[in-house]
Design a protein around this nucleic acid. Structure first.
Length: 922
RNA sequence: GGGCGCUUAGCUCAGUUGGGAGAGCGACGGCCUUACAAGCCGUAGGUCGCAGGUUCGACCCCUGCAGCGCCCA
């Protein structure tokens, strides 16, 4: 027996994982039906955060369950090249040595990135192993490995050939810091304080109805006025109707631009006149197209002013230009008013930089045709979101989907497989050679490869089939695709889930997964989003391994983008974790996540919770110690006579198994966790183990009885460990390896054992009834003892009266148990007409359970206890009488419901009356 | 502005066809009882956000309102 002392996760988790991995237990095996989950590939730049830990706990729980349940499981591992994030990281590293990526050039730079990946890209893989995640590492993929790259090229070329990818000049979201286009989804709009500037644009040879020779236009972005190509008014606006078609002279520039009419203009906003800058605003762009306006670009890629603007502004940064434009207009008396204004400012989700709508040549996916079948698949239920309401989110976005800008002006990523000739003609193909052949281009024709790369989500969209070998028709594809369930956060439904559905259906004709389980975000104890800047981030590894306070403070305050936050972060950290964080272990962390995984809700991570589940681990540990102490060295192979409680615990366990399986099949991880917790602690430990002691320590017990109980202690525990293994793999494995051999089990690991089924155990209503009766009597006596402050060491006598033959029989069979569990030294039955001595009373059905006062019990306290009980019953009775006195209730409610209420009433009345008699007798 | 969600014990949250309001933590009282003080036994605590409606009956269904949160524009 190796289980000793108390539960110490550090002692047991270290080696088990390596052993499992070495034994190849994570790879698909067996001939069962296949079951597959694809990991949302973590970024190679990433380190494990609470979101990963949560996400993976759920996946691993499912995979381990399904594996044990006989499925041929594949949990596919892989990482994402994370284009922008990785490039930024490596660039920063180079810059620290004073080198920019432009200094060394594209080829050398990407070489550096590969080097970095080799050295540091594996961090997260090691951390994932600490979570116990049973991923198939042997098939690990990377979104830029050779096979995956081939799939990406293949998809691009086919989409292009089908006319679903096109290249063109469009207004896109431009990140001036990255100097790249980004997609709509990568733009975050936040309210910020700004100003609304009102300018006077002179009318050429015209006057307004109120006699002015100018129009007032308002803007939040003065610098863009240099690119104005029209002023728009609402067609029905009486003030300006006559001026439609008139000409305005653009100040500072001198360009003559028309006054146009468009429904889009809100006459209520500002003056009702709007300046139109088609090259720098999405709405203006659309209006420009409608009215065939010229597009004047005024910005360079780094958001300095373009040479198309008047000389005074050229080369200025956009914000300097803003001041300069305002100043210049003011000096020309063209500035009307300035007012404070709240506006939505678009920022890049990676860089934080203010995004510019910018006119550039980019590659786009025509999403309409791809979206249609993807919408249908969810509508007809082939793909199901859990919880269901996320389908609305999905539909809303998909039904209004815009073309997808997929090109990025970056170096790290999948290079777009396109080539240009000297005339700017573009050729798309899997390789330059293929392009030349396809288009009969002689060697003499010079071709330049496209510089742009694909955005990362383009390749992630191919994840479910790309990892399984597509475009080859592999064994894996036919076996594991479509995958069974995707488990992910709601933040990437559009980024990833929707695009996967579109791409997968288009290229494989199959859905990528049957279910999408959407979980919430992990927040801190106060419900705040965890962030580095706020310094409230929690590291899952700190909960697993523990961390000293000083180290935690250092971790949270190092490398802050806003170093001025450090003192505040330090203070709150010292307050929240005065002792640092102790080691709770992986199992406790996983159990916490499971228990908190309720549908459609974010998770507030509270240390108190994980502490409770660490205690639960300790409870299991000690229960196992008890079982082993009482079984080790005993031969349990012989004849056995299971006791009533033996039969009871197995019957209860049967119910727990049914609950656990149902919960897991319906993704109710919380219910699964609580079924395990409830049985293990409150049935097995609190009652069963205690109820075995009288027999185990009874010198007169027969060998058959002892064997029956010893067997059952082991059997129930062994089954419980298997049932709990998916959520707490390490402790269950450790304990199981000591428990299972006692039962003659020979396999080497719990993780390849069968998941227990309710059918493995017998339902035993007789035993359940009996033990529930016994518990009732024990609790009754305990209540009396507790309320009367009778010391636990003090034995009491017990008087029983009333009830029927079954009460007598039950009391008889459970005599020894009763005596021990309620510390009773003497039990006597009174006849119906016997007058009991002064006593404290508890009722179990019709049975009176009495503890004689005999100087033990404070009469006052007992009277108070009885009165309280009577009050409670009176309330119930009143409510029940009211209900049953209501004719329409009796007439309209189902008979069973009415009968139930009647039974409750007679129960309560009987009980109340008995207690009243008792109270009077005291 | 549109959509979705949340509001239940001091705190964090369950409550699955509408029919006796639950758990964990915390609080209080008592226990070093030969697995476990990371434990054991017991107790207290809720007009289920507010106002209407449907129903014999509403935490649950409908409407409106308030507060909070998220997504989209």
């Amino acid at each position: 027996m190796s289980i000793e002392g108390s539960f110490n996760p550090k002692d047991i988790e270290q080696d088990l994982y390596a052993e499992w991995e070495q034994a190849n237990y994570f790879a698909p095996s067996g001939n069962g039906p296949s079951y597959c989950i694809m990991i949302p590939p973590p970024n190679i730049t990433g380190s494990l955060h609470m979101g990963h830990a949560f996400n993976q706990t759920l996946m691993d729980t499912l995979i381990r369950y399904q594996r044990m349940a006989g499925k041929r499981t594949l949990w596919q591992m892989g990482t994402d090249h994370a284009g922008i994030a990785t490039q930024m990281l490596v660039e920063r590293k180079l810059l620290a040595d004073g080198v920019s990526r432009h200094d060394i050039g594209r080829e050398a730079f990407t070489e550096k990135v590969w080097e970095w990946r080799k050295e540091s890209g594996g961090t997260i893989s090691q951390q994932i192993r600490r979570m116990g995640s049973s991923l198939d590492w042997s098939r690990e993929r990377f979104t830029m490995d050779e096979g995956f790259s081939r799939a990406v090229r293949e998809v691009f070329v086919r989409l292009f050939d089908e006319g679903l990818i096109y290249r063109g000049q469009r207004l896109v979201n431009w990140d001036p810091r990255l100097r790249s286009a980004i997609s709509d989804l990568e733009v975050e709009n936040h309210d910020e304080n700004g100003h609304l500037w009102h300018f006077r644009y002179p009318l050429k040879d015209r006057k307004t109805t109120d006699g002015k020779d100018y129009l007032v236009v308002a803007t939040t972005r003065p610098e863009t006025m240099l690119g104005d190509t029209a002023v728009a008014v609402h067609p029905e606006d009486e003030r300006y109707k006559d001026l439609i078609g008139a000409t305005v002279v653009l100040p500072l520039v001198g360009r003559e631009i028309p006054v146009i009419a468009d429904d889009y203009v809100d006459p209520e906003f500002g003056s009702g006149c709007v300046k139109i800058t088609p090259a720098h605003d999405f709405n203006d762009y659309e209006m420009g197209k409608r009215h065939d306006l010229p597009m004047v670009n005024v910005l360079n890629p780094d958001a300095t002013m373009h040479e198309s603007v008047p000389e005074a502004f050229r080369g200025l940064d956009r914000y300097e230009a803003r001041k300069a434009v305002v100043a210049a207009l003011e000096s020309e008396h063209r500035l009307d008013t300035i007012e404070p204004h709240k506006l939505k400012v678009p920022r890049g989700d990676r860089s934080g930089e203010v995004i510019e709508p910018y006119l550039t040549d980019q590659w786009f996916v025509r999403t309409g045709p791809l979206a249609e079948p993807a919408i249908e698949a969810v509508e007809d239920g082939r793909i199901e979101f859990i919880p269901k309401q996320f389908e609305n989110t999905y539909f809303a976005w998909m039904r209004n989907i815009q073309d997808w800008c997929i090109s990025r002006q970056q170096w790290w990523g999948h290079r777009i497989p396109a080539w240009y000739d000297a005339d700017g003609n573009v050729y798309v193909g899997r390789s330059e050679a293929e392009v030349r052949e396809k288009h009969s281009l002689a060697e003499a024709v010079a071709l330049t490869e496209e510089e742009d790369v694909l955005e990362t989500w383009f390749s992630s969209a191919l994840w479910t089939f790309g990892t399984l070998g597509w475009p080859e028709e592999t064994e894996e594809l036919s076996q594991f695709h479509p995958t069974d369930v995707l488990i992910t956060g709601h933040d990437i439904i559009f980024f990833w889930v929707a695009r996967m559905i579109m791409m997968t259906m288009h290229f494989t004709g199959e859905i990528p997964f049957k279910k999408v389980y959407i979980h919430g975000l992990v927040r801190d104890a106060l419900g705040n989003k965890m962030s580095k800047t706020k310094g409230n981030g929690l590291d899952p590894l700190d909960f697993i391994e523990g961390v000293e306070l000083e180290e935690l403070v250092a971790k949270r305050t190092n490398n802050l983008t806003q170093p001025q936050m450090a003192p505040r972060i330090e203070k709150s950290t010292r307050k929240d974790f005065p002792e640092g964080i102790t080691s709770y272990g992986t199992d406790a962390l996983r159990f916490t996540f499971c228990a908190m995984a309720t549908l459609g809700r974010d998770v507030r991570f509270d240390v108190k919770r994980i502490e409770g589940y660490r205690n639960f681990c300790n409870k299991l540990w000690n229960a196992t110690r008890f079982v082993l102490q009482n079984t080790d060295g005993h031969d349990i192979s012989g004849e056995s006579t299971p006791s009533l409680v033996d039969r009871w615990v197995l019957s209860k366990l049967r119910g727990t198994l049914a609950e656990a399986r149902l919960a897991l099949e319906t993704y109710r991880f919380d219910l699964y966790a609580s079924a395990i917790y409830e049985f293990a602690w409150h049935e097995y430990c609190d009652w069963y183990v205690e109820l075995t002691k009288p027999l185990l320590w009874n010198e007169e017990a027969t060998p058959e009885e002892l064997t029956g109980t010893r067997r059952t202690l082991l059997e129930a525990l062994e089954i419980l460990l298997r049932a709990a293994h998916p959520v707490m793999p390490f402790i269950t494995e450790t304990l199981w390896r000591d428990v299972a051999p006692m039962l003659g089990k020979a396999t080497s690991s719990i993780m390849i054992e069968a998941y227990p089924e309710p059918a493995d155990l017998a339902e035993d209503t007789e035993a359940e009834t009996a033990v529930e009766w016994l518990k009732g009597v024990i609790v009754g006596v305990r209540n009396i003892r507790g309320e009367a402050n009778i010391k636990p060491s003090q034995s009491v006598s017990l008087l029983l009266q009333g009830g029927d033959a079954s009460d007598r029989l039950l009391a008889d069979t459970t005599d020894a148990l009763l005596r021990r569990m309620a510390k009773i030294d003497d039990i006597q039955w009174l006849e119906a007409d016997d007058e009991p001595p002064a006593n404290a009373l508890a009722l179990v059905g019709d049975l009176k359970v009495m503890v004689p006062l005999a100087g033990l019990i404070d009469v006052g306290a007992e009277k108070e206890r009885l009165s309280k009980e009577i009050d409670k019953l009176d309330k119930d009775i009143k409510r029940l009488e009211g209900k049953l006195g209501n004719d329409s209730f009796v007439a309209k409610a189902p008979e069973a419901v009415v009968q139930k209420e009647r039974d409750k009433l007679s129960d309560a009345t009987g009980k109340r009356d008995a207690l009243k008699v008792q109270l009077a007798a005291l």
